[in-house]
Simulated scan of single mutants.
Amino acid sequence: MESGPGRGINFGNALDALGGGPELPLDERYFDEVARAGFDTVRLPVRWSAHAAAAAPYTIDPAFFRRVDAGVRAALDRGLNAVVNVHHYQEMNTDPDAHLPRFLALWRQIAARYAGLPGQLAFELLNEPGGRLTPSRWNAVLAQALAAVRASDPERTVIIGPAGHNDLHALPALAVPDDARLLATVHYYAPFDFTHQGAGWVPGADRWLGRTWGGASDEDAVRSDLERAAAWGREHGLRLFVGEFGAFCGAAMDSRERWTAFVRAEADRLGMSWAYWEFGTDFGAFDLVRGAWREPLRRALLGAADPARRTSRP
């Protein structure tokens, strides 16, 4: 992944599903849709912690490992990059000292299993660290997790992000290890009362229903945010990956299209790779029932770009 993930999409709510909401079947035809549309990358959020033993050596369930294998291989076989992360390990945010040995054991297993795969696979150490994973604590944990990966996979691209749930405003507190194969990630859902209006898991989100987006002040805010992140990346010599951005289906589609197109265009202008959240559930750019892209969102993400282009190929 020498030139970065390029244009990506998240297969959220598949290998990371918490239950109680829509889930994405990890079907190979969806990888076909992503490749044909012209994306470069599939980000695979994985809830390893729900499929690993609670006691040392914290063995990952072999059947679940095979499910992840299938997703990684489906992406690579189609000339797509793949990003595999540790997702929804909430206990790392609430009790990091107790869960650190298990977290590191997960990464030792993941890195060893995939060490022989092509460079189009990247690892992302932890999705949205926060809570008791304060910046200083997370910086120490990040270094340990990177060492766990490097023990068996010294050349793999590894993606790191700041505490504060990968918010771009938290980048200044991120301590970057001395490692030549790192990317930095941020997530972008601003303004939150627009992107999460009507989201059932956010208290009070129904009060935001009807919030639109698209005026000059809205654009200025996004531009300022992303330029700040880009400046940090230049200062630290790191490529930036907007690993998640998207607007929940509670927002009107015309505003969702404008916001998505503007965030994507600004990321492109600033040389950032990105991955839209997400493919086919409640933020989805693809309608699973119709078996077709939601055209306003597909257009916002890809426009009239040449679908044959790929940022990286095996």
Rank of each mutant, 00 (worst) to 15 (best):
P57E: 00
P57W: 03
A50T: 13
A37F: 02
A53M: 06
F64P: 02
R67G: 10
G38I: 09
A53E: 12
R29H: 07
D61S: 00
D69L: 11
P57S: 03
A35S: 05
D61N: 00
A63H: 06
F64Q: 08
Y58A: 02
H51Y: 01
A55Q: 13
D40I: 12
H51R: 12
T59M: 02
V72P: 04
H51S: 08
R36P: 09
A56Q: 12
T59D: 06
T59I: 07
Y30S: 04
A37K: 03
D32P: 01
A70T: 14
S49D: 15
V68G: 01
T59R: 08
A70R: 11
D69M: 08
A63S: 11
P45F: 06
T59F: 03
E28Q: 07
P45Y: 05
L44F: 07
I60Y: 00
E33F: 04
I60K: 05
I60D: 01
F39W: 07
A53K: 09
A56K: 01
F65P: 04
Y30T: 08
P45V: 09
F64Y: 08
R47M: 14
R67T: 15
T41W: 03
V68R: 01
D61L: 05
A55E: 14
R43E: 13
P45A: 11
D40N: 09
Y30M: 11
P45M: 06
H51F: 12
P45T: 10
R29G: 08
V34R: 00
A63Q: 12
R67N: 11
S49P: 01
S49L: 13
F39Y: 14
S49Y: 05
D61K: 02
V72K: 00
Y58V: 13
F31L: 12
V34I: 12
A70K: 09
A53G: 14
R66V: 15
Y58E: 09
V34L: 09
A50S: 14
Y58W: 00
A53P: 00
L44S: 04
A50R: 10
V72N: 02
V72T: 10
A70Q: 14
F65D: 15
V34Q: 02
R36C: 08
A54T: 15
A70I: 14
P62N: 05
R67H: 07
F39G: 10
F64K: 09
E28M: 03
G38D: 05
A70C: 04
A50V: 12
A53L: 09
I60P: 02
